[in-house]
Structures are given as C-alpha cells and as structure tokens.
Simulated assay, not measured.
Amino acid sequence: MTRNPLFSTYRTSENRVTSSLLAVLQRLESHIVERILGGAIGETTLSLLTYTNQPTQGKDAPSVPDASISASFRWLFEVKTTKSALTKPGQLGNHLSLLTGTHADERLFVLTPDPEQPKGVTELADPRVVWFNFAALSQSIDALLADPDELVGEQGVFLLRELQALFRLDDLLEHEDVAIVAAREAYPEYLRHGAYVCQPNRSFRSGITHFGFYTDKAIRQEIAAILYSEEAVHFTLEEATRRKADPKPEVIRIGELIEHLLAEDARAEGAEYKVLLLSTAKDDRTVLLPHLVTNTKLDASGRTTAWTQGQRYVRLSALGKGPRTTGELDTLH
C-alpha cells in the first residue's frame, strides 16, 4: 500500500519541500547531514562541526584543553521546485549580500529539479554558490542508507525515506530525458544509418539522453541513446574524406554518414546540417518498447490530430511503463 509522505503542511510545493527538508535535517546527527549534503554536491570535506584532540592554542597559551568542538559557518539555501526557475542571477546575488565574511565557511546552496546547472547560477560564477538537484540529493541518501559502516537509527531512516517520497510525489526526481521528433523520413533514415540529421544549430532541451521517432500515427519502438552530436557539419565529399581519416570513431562515423547520405541524394551537397549519432536499432543501448505507442490525441472538434509536428519531450521512465497510446503516455508523464 502506498503511504502519503509525512510532511505536507504547506500548500505550495516550494514551501512544503523546503520545510520538510529542514524538518528532516534538524532531526539528524550532524555527521549524517554532512554526509548527505556532501554527497549531493560531490564534496567529501563538508563539515558542520570540527572535533579536535589536544587543540593547539599558541605558544603563549596558559593551557592545552583535552579536546574541542567548534563551528564557524553560515549556509543559506534557495530551493526551487520548478525547472528553469533560475534563468537570471539577481535573486541569488541578493542572497550573497547576506554572506558578509563573518564565518569561516559561507555558502549559498541552490537546490532545483533541473538536470543541469541553471543559467542563473552559471552566470553568477561565485564559488560560494553550490548547486545540486533533487536527484543528486536522493542518490546521496540512498548511498548513505546502503553503507553498512554508517549507523543510522530507525527514526533517521524513516524520515529520509519519507523525504524521498515527498520528492517523488512533487515530481522532483525525474526530468524529460527523451526527445520525440516527427519523423516521416527521419525514422527510416535512422534505421539505415543510426543517426538523426536536421537543420544546423537546431535547439533541443538540455538534459536529453535519448531520441525517439513519431511517424505513421505512432511513437516507434526504438528509443535510441544519443552518443554524439555536432551543431553544423559541412556535407561535402571532401569533408567526408577528411573525417574518415580522423582517429576518433565518432568523427569517422560522421564522415561515412556524409558519404552515404550524399550518395542517396538525401542531403544537398555543400550545405550544413546538425548531426546526432544514435545507438542503432540492434544496439543494447537502445531501449526497445514492447509495442508502438499509438496516437489518440484529439483536437477541439474531436478529430484525431498529430501528437507532435516538431518535437516533444517525455520521460524514459514513463515510456518504460509500456503505454499503448499517447493518451496513456501523457497521463503517466
């Protein structure tokens, strides 16, 4: 039976998640908090408290204590529960003005559901700002609880698992990692060459790892892994020859692709195209759905309309649940 998460006093997702996170952290031992946050940001030296035996006090000190426990830090948190909410650094810059240098360790932790570091954090370029996402935080919790050498009490385990349940309920642990493109001609081309070729510098959402194809009123079964991409490739026989002499296998493969597509008269010689090299239909890295996902999308008048005429994004986990129709997929998504 599915349990409801423990913490849900606030109505808005951002306040509820922030309040629940703090409620859990304040009930955990300091070294566990250090381990969880340090694991999420990839820093093993994160420290709330410093424990020292025989602390040195300087040569003129009247005595040497047997031990000391000390702390000098201020950590601020900014939590967002919607993707792409930090496109500008303004709010974070205002938070940084509160870090005045009065503590030895001053940081602004930024927690969002984005698959990659938000633009606002990148533009700020301040070493005191540390970004991580909910997926990294949840993975750090899993690593902690799976470590046989780390003793976590029953209450701590319960609280951490309930916190993860809240993250899942608020849809914070996953992101759209599959691009599905309209592909009447691109799908058969993919089957022949294991690639997707389109106009140069075409934009796809950051964080996508797989590529799927919508044609003949259905999403096809092959969900290919993206292996390599280039924004603007010059399609000439000279360029194909040059690339085929390169030691890098992905560059060689693009050279061969140029040669094949020009021979098929499928692309204009001399033009530039964006190229994505994909895992082939028989490659183990390609996720093979159990069946086609048939389109059931209707327009306002009740007539069937295309599920996508350009590109749409879905979760690989939703596709993995085996929806038979795009309506089922949209519900899962």
Rank of each mutant, 00 (worst) to 15 (best):
R303H: 13
H210D: 03
V178N: 01
I32H: 12
V293M: 05
L144I: 08
G153W: 01
Q199H: 15
A135C: 09
L108C: 10
A136D: 04
V251D: 10
L6D: 05
E189P: 11
P118N: 07
N295Q: 03
T326D: 02
S279A: 15
K282R: 14
L191F: 11
R202K: 14
P115I: 00
K274N: 04
V293N: 01
A61R: 05
H234E: 12
L329F: 03
K80G: 02
R242A: 09
P65H: 09
R312W: 00
P249G: 12
L6S: 05
N133T: 14
T81Y: 00
K274L: 10
T209F: 00
F73V: 13
N201V: 02
Y214N: 08
T215I: 11
A104Q: 04
G302Q: 01
E176K: 12
T331L: 14
H95K: 15
A218G: 09
A218E: 03
E162W: 03
G302R: 00
R243G: 15
T45W: 08
A136L: 10
T215F: 05
A125E: 11
T82I: 09
H95F: 05
R3W: 11
G194S: 14
N4C: 06
T44I: 13
E250D: 12
R184F: 05
V130G: 10
S84D: 07
A143I: 00
Y228N: 12
E123Q: 15
R184N: 12
G153K: 07
I223S: 01
T102I: 15
I258Q: 02
E222V: 01
E231C: 11
T2W: 14
N94D: 12
I254A: 13
T122I: 06
P65Q: 09
Q91E: 12
R220I: 02
G207H: 01
D105S: 14
S317Y: 00
Q91S: 15
G212L: 07
L276P: 01
G322I: 03
S72V: 14
L227Y: 03
E174M: 10
Q155N: 12
L92P: 05
Q164K: 07
S138A: 07
D149G: 08
L169P: 06
F211R: 03
V24I: 12
G153S: 11
R128A: 04
L37M: 13
R168P: 01
Y273A: 12
I254C: 15
A165V: 00
Q57P: 05
V64P: 05
A136V: 00
A146L: 13
V121R: 00
R16K: 13
Y196G: 06
G39E: 01
S203I: 14
Q164V: 05
H31Q: 13
